[in-house]
Write a protein that binds this DNA or RNA. Sequence first.
DNA 1: TCAATAGTGTCTATGAGACAGTATGGT
DNA 2: ACCATACTGTCTCATAGACACTATTGA
Lengths: 326, 326
Amino acid sequence: MTDGKAERPQGRKPRRDADGLTEEEFLAGYDAGDYERPSVAADMVIFTVAGEKEENYRKLPKRSLRVLLVRRGGHPYLGCWALPGGFVRPNETAGEAAERELREETGVDRVYMEQLHTFSDVGRDPRTWVMSCAHMALVDSGELKVRAGDDAEHAAWFELTYRLKSESRERLDEGGMLHVRRCELRLTPVRSDGEEAGDPPTDGDELTAVVEHRRIRTNRASTEEYAIAGNKGLAFDHAKIVAMAVDRLRGRLEEGELALHLMPELFTLTELQQVYEAILDRELLKAAFRRKAEPLVEKTDQYTENAGHRPSRLYRRSREEWGDYS
Amino acid sequence: MTDGKAERPQGRKPRRDADGLTEEEFLAGYDAGDYERPSVAADMVIFTVAGEKEENYRKLPKRSLRVLLVRRGGHPYLGCWALPGGFVRPNETAGEAAERELREETGVDRVYMEQLHTFSDVGRDPRTWVMSCAHMALVDSGELKVRAGDDAEHAAWFELTYRLKSESRERLDEGGMLHVRRCELRLTPVRSDGEEAGDPPTDGDELTAVVEHRRIRTNRASTEEYAIAGNKGLAFDHAKIVAMAVDRLRGRLEEGELALHLMPELFTLTELQQVYEAILDRELLKAAFRRKAEPLVEKTDQYTENAGHRPSRLYRRSREEWGDYS
DNA sequence: TCAATAGTGTCTATGAGACAGTATGGT
DNA sequence: ACCATACTGTCTCATAGACACTATTGA
């Protein structure tokens, strides 16, 4: 993910510090001391969009946004579902740790991945001081073969909805403004995913959480924070992480390009539109969508077959355009 | 910044793990073990926009984007300039640590602040395993009273330019695409800042670095990374952090609202425009700018005086509109 | 033939970019 | 008077939203 060692600035002569040591000497004698240090975990919000087959041979399958969760086999939050993740090791970056986790959990390797946020609330892990450097990844559902974890934990896909439940704006006395959006996060386990017959993940059924997104804006300050206002079945502060990931995913969508990482090699524009709709949780107009999408994709000469209706042209992700960053 | 303890999910009965322990019993006997843990620092990219007085009584002062840096008084990188920062303590979040650092360094307290990214390259700190949870903050230059650090380090403002030097797109053999943008970061110390006579920070003069922003896009992967390609006078990987902060700042500007945090209580639209121009490093059209800005601000009935030209109306940040998040 | 989707054309409202024009206070 | 800025008006063009229309398949 990154480039090894920090660069040493050029053109400096060896300098000596207050103790008369050069940098080399200083480092040789350096003692890390025993300040308390946090454990840092890399947690992954792994998204995919997939749809079941439709009974009506003509209709297209509905597609839904899904996240991968892992059932906790030990305390704390025993039996709850959590984001896949693991501790960052001294010889890797947080991004590499996240990639490792992704690989272990899904078998998928090279996908879109982005660092989300580092969560460091005091007491977020009841065991000890643990920060979570959260990442999100987008995986084409075709690539997937979720393996139940080897460590007696079960991984499963959950359909995700994240909807605004209520919203309020309020003036504060000091002349500021408080804006609260209360959103409901609902995760329902996907039955048998088609692949891999075994291990029906059904257990407590649906996980739900209410996440408050509050923006406080006083005279010249401006804060934004997520808080968990209710939570059933999700471990730690992971409801907050998922909420932030969905918000980010939706935001990134507007910038184009990104949803392509959820698509297989070849796809139709309608499929791409469905992915957008599943993520944004609203319907889009066909004509407008196609206009926006066209510059991001590349025509092929292939068409779908046996669809029960007019065949549609297949596209692939365009390697030409990167959008124009000036 | 966040809401204390993680929420416990509701509606669960005490469960026992494989050892027959309840969660309470498990936590009571929990031993954190002695895995190696990283130190986590919170580093701050503190931005402001300010301008010197102009010799011509009629002309408006030019404004420039500035960052606060701190001179390192010890190894490693002795004598180099670094971002202000400090280690996160067990009883605070990374955000709180960053706020603390901001307060210590600038005396300013409640401003816009945002977490940027957590940098965890292996070897980024030659002493030991240190991650940096980087933040950026926007400070109205009127509020500032930079105090030279008490710990024998000097803090100083640097004018910042960050410009594209070269750019290349290249197809990879495997069908991917490599897009490299090479940008030059140039930091020139601001002479005497007007406030606080003492301590002219001039020393080695200008700091420069070249930061490569590479986006690799193979078949379905997509990576984005910053790398330092040259560096004079900046400690650690801080050139990378500053580069990312500027990119983020510019990106956020498009979304409106944000630049207001760099403004004093009352300001003219031209001043606001200058702030935009200083950050984006390009000129904007007046008419278009005013149209975009108007919804974000609130008219007052006050005007500038003694300007040597037509007085201009003063505005304040509007508390009404938050933009429309649907 | 029909259900269901594929794909296109066009009208309108909105907003950005560009540029020219008028207004006004201080010296 | 005149400089430098404040502020406004308007033209054009590109784009988003809305909606209607035609095209094409397999059962």
